[in-house]
């Protein structure tokens, strides 16, 4: 897979009833995805960890990341992090993320991620800039199990943000 390129999802990987959508990904372009309504529960006690370069390309991911995403590690490393982008996530959420971390600040937020099999999982994510010798060299993202109350709040907020983006 080329840098900053993402192949379309393969509908053969999606076992559940699904809808087909085309995402417009910043810096990448269009990606065709198939999305189901099946949620995969976040596994208790785990941390999902990944590191990206400053362009958002995955350079490291742990076993929990691989397992929850459904992709193999070779596919993930070298891919843009937006390989997990779910159409229910508003662009504004990621804009805010990049604005914060590229300014050297920590970002927290609730994220709905899209799996290779079209299902989704919610995380509470913290993204921190990795500063080495005074400069941001990469970003580390750590996800943990979110509370349901927070997920429900995020769902409502993201629906409203998506509606605003659609009408803009």
């Amino acid at each position: 897979m080329d840098r900053a390129k993402l192949e379309d999802m393969d509908p053969a990987d999606v076992p559940d009833a699904s809808r087909e959508l085309v995402l417009q990904l910043y810096g990448i372009g269009a990606r065709r995805v198939w999305v189901s309504d099946r949620e995969v529960p976040y596994p208790d006690g785990r941390l999902i960890v990944s590191t990206t370069d400053t362009a958002g390309i995955i350079t490291h991911c742990n076993a929990s990341f691989v397992e929850m995403s459904g992709y193999d590690r070779d596919t993930l490393v070298g891919s843009p992090h937006s390989i997990l982008r779910h159409p229910d996530m508003p662009a504004a959420a990621f804009q805010q993320l990049w604005d914060e971390v590229s300014a050297g600040r920590i970002w927290h937020g609730y994220v709905k991620n899209l799996r290779r099999d079209g299902a989704f999982y919610w995380v509470y994510a913290t993204v921190i800039p990795n500063v080495r010798d005074g400069a941001i060299k990469s970003y580390t993202s750590v996800r943990r199990k979110p509370s349901r109350r927070r997920v429900e709040e995020a769902e409502t907020a993201y629906r409203q943000a998506l509606a605003q983006e659609a009408s803009a």
């Binding site: 960890v49 590191t51 913290t126 993204v127 921190i128 990795n130 080495r132 580390t140 750590v142």
Partner: peptide, 13 residues
Amino acid sequence: TEFMIDLMDALMA
């Protein structure tokens, strides 16, 4: 070690 420290920072943040 820097990676582990970044992880700890993320958990403390």
